[in-house]
Design a protein around this nucleic acid. Structure first.
Length: 182
DNA sequence: CGACTTTGACCGGCGC
DNA sequence: GCGCCGGTCAAAGTCG
């Protein structure tokens, strides 16, 4: 009906009891780019503007390789280095003329080897969509950060080539400190 | 009962 | 202008 609409999410200060905090996986590059701490090594925030790498079937774009041995025992083997040269994270220069979303077109894609696609990255997500993509037998799931006002979205899908891998694409920057006070 | 998921419909951009 | 396609909405259902 209404063209413009925002979901009325309420407070999310619910309990978040997960035993995986110790090994929760925070995409380091994203966090760094967000908080902009004094890390000269991290100047990657600009590089992460992934474009439609999926659709164009380019070579692989980003990867923080994470092996997940069990849902409660994540082992992070993130090889995402601090510079884009040494990391597996490859950036695509966004094409000129390509639209950007709210002036923040930051997208970070991670490739994760996992059997389950619900990876505990420490944040709380609410699914808002699911779509079958062409050229892929697998659906794509759309999530949004449960914190109201937080513009971060992520989409999760399986690699159409290797279904052993889950590709998670983060978009946006978190408004808030973190998933839990802890 | 509240928060979240499910699911089809809807929207808008883009290519033809 | 039309249709395709990725992304989002939102009502109904589900779960704890």
């Amino acid at each position: 009906m209404d063209g413009n609409y925002y979901p009325n999410s309420t407070n999310m200060s619910d309990h978040y009891n997960s035993s995986t905090f110790g090994s929760a996986y925070y995409p380091p590059e994203m966090m760094e780019s967000e908080y902009g701490e004094n890390h000269p090594n991290f100047e990657v925030s600009e590089f992460f503007e992934l474009d439609d790498w999926m659709e164009e079937d380019q070579t692989f774009m980003a990867s923080g390789y994470t092996t997940m041995q069990s849902p409660h025992d994540q082992e992070v083997i993130n090889t995402g280095g601090t510079t884009s040269q040494h990391s597996n994270i490859v950036n695509t220069n966004n094409r000129n003329g390509r639209r950007e979303r709210n002036g923040k077109g930051e997208k970070v894609a991670f490739k994760t080897k996992s059997e389950v696609e619900i990876l505990d990255d420490g944040f709380k997500w609410r699914k808002y969509g699911k779509k079958m993509v062409k050229n892929s037998p697998n659906p794509r799931n759309y999530y949004r950060c449960s914190v109201e006002g937080c513009p971060v979205k992520k989409r999760v899908e399986r690699d159409r080539e290797d279904q052993r891998y889950v590709i998670t694409t983060y978009e946006g920057i978190h408004n808030h400190q973190g998933p839990s006070l802890f």
